[in-house]
Simulated scan of single mutants.
Amino acid sequence: MAFASSKSIHHHAERIALRMDFEAITGNSRVVTVIAFLAPLVFTAFTWSAGPDDSGLPLTVMAYLTVMYWVASVAVMFQFNSAGQYTSTRMIGVMPVSRRTQVNMRYCSAGVLFLICFAELGIEITLSRLWFGIGLGALATVVPLAMAAFAMLAAIVIPVFYSCDDFTKAYSRLFTGAITLFFAAQIIMLLLPHGLRSQILSMTITVSPLGWAAIAAVVVLALVTSYHISLRLWGTKEL
């Protein structure tokens, strides 16, 4: 009986932590929730001029922006952890949720956003196909790489925010890093030989099974390392 009661309390604590994460994103408002979860659909505009033969770059840009939007939403969950949010910080300190549970559910919340991100990306691709006739030959490369990118970026973002007391500064660094990465990729593309650039833009380059296995191994290692760093950082932080 005591074990069942303890398990029930633990599950209740998990639900509290998960609910707080998503309240940070939505503000506990239905209107904000609808706006937040439908906003990425505007990224289909980046595929309006793409035809069936040059879909690689438009699909990549749309996937990149969608991934960055939802990775940024992972970051938004940390606004209650900011030292500037005094009331929220005190609430985290007294609510019946252990530090380990908070970290565990933060990664679970990121996993939920991962599923939402790629469900929404699927909707965007469908709309792009129906509205603009975009080709789908690049999907086999673009989508798996986007999934790996989400996991890698989340693995970086979560411990960074756990280590930073100033949410606004950390979020600003995230945004600056994303923009820098985007324009750095554009510069690198311009410097590549024309033939290789054309292949990348059309996403005709394929990844071997061994390559995909290596990418998956790197992602798993990054997530495991990220989790242990986050647990250590948040477990020793004073509230």
Rank of each mutant, 00 (worst) to 15 (best):
P193G: 07
W48P: 00
P96R: 09
R15C: 08
L223Q: 11
A13N: 07
I179E: 06
I156M: 05
A50S: 10
Q85L: 07
V34W: 11
T204N: 10
P193D: 12
F114E: 02
L145N: 03
F150S: 05
K7V: 14
L231Y: 03
E23R: 14
L196G: 00
S208W: 05
R173A: 09
P96W: 07
S198C: 02
G133P: 09
L231S: 08
Q199I: 04
M203C: 11
I179F: 07
V207G: 03
V32I: 13
V76N: 08
N28V: 05
F37V: 07
V103W: 01
M77N: 02
Q79H: 13
Q79I: 14
F3V: 13
F80T: 12
Y69L: 13
T33L: 13
V219Q: 03
F78G: 09
F132I: 06
S226T: 15
G27P: 10
F22Y: 12
P144M: 06
S202Q: 02
A83H: 13
S49A: 13
T44C: 11
L191A: 14
A216L: 12
F46R: 11
F182W: 14
V160N: 01
T206D: 14
M20V: 11
Y86E: 15
I123C: 08
V224D: 02
D166T: 02
L190W: 09
D21N: 10
